[in-house]
Amino acid sequence: MSGPAPEWGLAVAAALLALGLAGVLVRRNVIFILMSVEIMLNAGGLAAVAAGARWGQADGQILFVLVLALAAAEVSVGLGLILLLHRRFGTVDADRFSEMRG
């Protein structure tokens, strides 16, 4: 019943954020890039909840709820953009979208 669990929660959040960032940088499929962005947002929410658990305040979970709303709006618009890109270019490879022809 001892041990600094909230601090370890921050460490797990940092590791998840690093994994999401690595996914954004490494992958070239836009679906994977969007999923990695979701992983990073989730890591941010985990950090907020861990901080709220450390101080016993509700503000951490409120920040997590707001991050959740942001993630929902972001993923809906992002997936709409992916559908549009797939319809227009016929691929979901991010390197193929490098040239914008008006």
């Binding site: 669990a5 909230p6 929660g9 679906i31 969007l34 999923m35 979701e38 989730n42 929410g45 909840v49 861990a50 709220g52 658990a53 951490g60 979970q61 997590f64 709820v65 959740l68 993630a71 929902a72 993923v75 809906s76 997936l79 992916i82 559908l83």
Partner: peptide
């Protein structure tokens, strides 16, 4: 385990339930 049961419920319902379903639809 961090004592945030409300956030855990929201994580399952909204993230694993709604957002991932959007991903599955698009895939």
């Amino acid at each position: 385990t961090l004592g945030a049961s409300f956030a855990a419920v929201l994580e399952v319902i909204i993230y694993a339930g709604a957002i991932v379903v959007l991903f599955v639809f698009v895939v």
